[in-house]
Amino acid sequence: MKRFDYSRPASVAEALAAWQPGSAWLGGGTNLVDLMKTGAVMPDRLIDLAGIPGLEDIEVSDDGSARIGALVRNSDLAHDPAFAAAFPMVAEAILAGASGQLRNAATVGGNLMQRTRCAYFTDPSSACNKRVPGSGCAAVGGVNGTHAVLGWSDSCIATNPSDFAVPLAALGAVVSVEGSDGRREIPFSEFHRLPGKTPEIDTALDPGELIVGLRLPAGAAAFRGHSRYLKLRDRTSYAFALVSAAAALRMEGDTIAEARLALGAVAAKPWRAAEAEALLAGQSPSPELFTRAAEAATGGATPSGDNDHKIELARRIAARALTLAAAGTPARMPALPASVHGDNAHA
């Protein structure tokens, strides 16, 4: 791979000071290092965040909110008892992702920053507007059975591969970032970007800004009793989602007081389905309701290639996730691995 400089700052301030154009933040490295090996990404300098103290805490508060440091390992978050109890579908989503070894290395901040797994992005000899702006999109007209069906543009049809980000979108998480101008918070819905004409820009982070943490807002834990993350894939582990869904309901008696629904692997960002949520609020759970909500969630979906099956599957997994959420979060959580095969699939 290309030669690069490496530094290991001892604080966020040192890290921010070390940044210059061409730098890349190094978290667990599970995605970045792979991309450096293929030459898809060639930073001049890696700023390794592993030595920075204070970014590894998980705090769950009584008001149903949570704060998560950016360097918390994916595994540690999923297995934190207080966190998993308050946000079971987040734990379920983390554990549905990657493999045990990767989750042990990958960080919370890094998970949000992972790049698309579109094969044409990873391969430097293919045209890719995300990797080389203006070079074209080889995925259009190529092997694209797993590509986007929502929010794509002619310049890019890639999807965001994260499982973790899907329930975060549903729960309205907030990303805390720090840059040379100080700290700011970015609502999750604005954090990941749709491609438009600038697919090279994945997120709302400004150059040199660093994710320092995540926040789940007050009340987010109120969905704990009725929330699920489901992932459809052709093997049980170490596979990206064909489609996925995070569904959470706040029940008042037999009525859905508030609903949250997000789809994964359908767009360049986790796809929060606000229209579906509105449709669900105030209603009693029923198969018909969930079918209608799922249709609303995929409204406007169009195939970007040989992938029209994803639209129907997204619809179906949204309805299934809502059905399972309505039935209640299983007593034993996290239910591992997240699977459409029901609660005992991990037996």
Binding site: S99, R117, A119, Y120, D123, S126, A138, G141, G142, V143, D234, R235, T236, S237, Y238, A239, F240, P337, H346
Partner: peptide, 23 residues
């Protein structure tokens, strides 16, 4: 295969699937 280029697009163990233990 990308039929336009003749290249395998899933040429790694993340993309070329074989069963995992859980399968």
């Amino acid at each position: 295969y990308d039929m336009r280029t003749g290249r395998v697009v899933n040429g790694d163990l993340a993309g070329y699937h074989v069963p995992v233990n859980a399968d």
